[in-house]
């Protein structure tokens, strides 16, 4: 039983580390700010959450496990909020996406409010 939990924790830890690395690769490789935000907010949240989950699985202490799980919930709540705030702020401040962008239905609106 405890061994199974440890192996499960190891799997979660490795998956979390790999997702974090992929988020970093995404932030480095993707061509513009908003696309990088996808990588950082999704893969980053999943990576960090999986590592905290691994801590909860491997330690055999209810108080620690509970804190780790609360930490996962906290991470999943705050990451989208910070990504959303940053995206909104940069769009209003006039950081434009690159020429790949197909439709930008927010552009005209923010253009008006900038005046």
């Amino acid at each position: 039983m405890t061994d199974a939990l440890i192996y499960l924790g190891c799997a979660a830890l490795l998956a979390g580390a790999i997702f974090t690395l992929l988020a970093a690769i995404g932030v480095l490789r993707l061509p513009d700010l908003y696309m990088r935000m996808h990588a950082a907010s999704k893969a980053g949240a999943v990576g960090g959450g999986l590592i905290l989950l691994a801590v909860a699985l491997v330690c055999f202490d209810a108080a620690v496990a509970l804190r780790a799980i609360i930490g996962v919930g906290f991470l999943l709540l705050t990451t989208p909020v910070s990504a959303h705030l940053l995206a909104r702020a940069s769009h209003y401040a006039g950081y434009r996406a690159d020429e790949l962008m197909e439709i930008d239905e927010l552009k005209s609106k923010s253009g008006q409010s900038l005046m």
Binding site: L13, R36, A40, A54, V58, L86, A89
Partner: peptide, 29 residues
């Protein structure tokens, strides 16, 4: 600037993962 802020955000999450891994390795809660 937003690119750098985003990267710093990811840096903090990675550092958090690092510290979490060390928590598992040393067994200190």
């Amino acid at each position: 600037l937003p690119d750098r802020v985003l990267a710093l955000d990811l840096l903090t999450v990675s550092a958090m993962g690092f510290v979490g891994t060390i928590a598992i390795r040393t067994g200190r809660a």
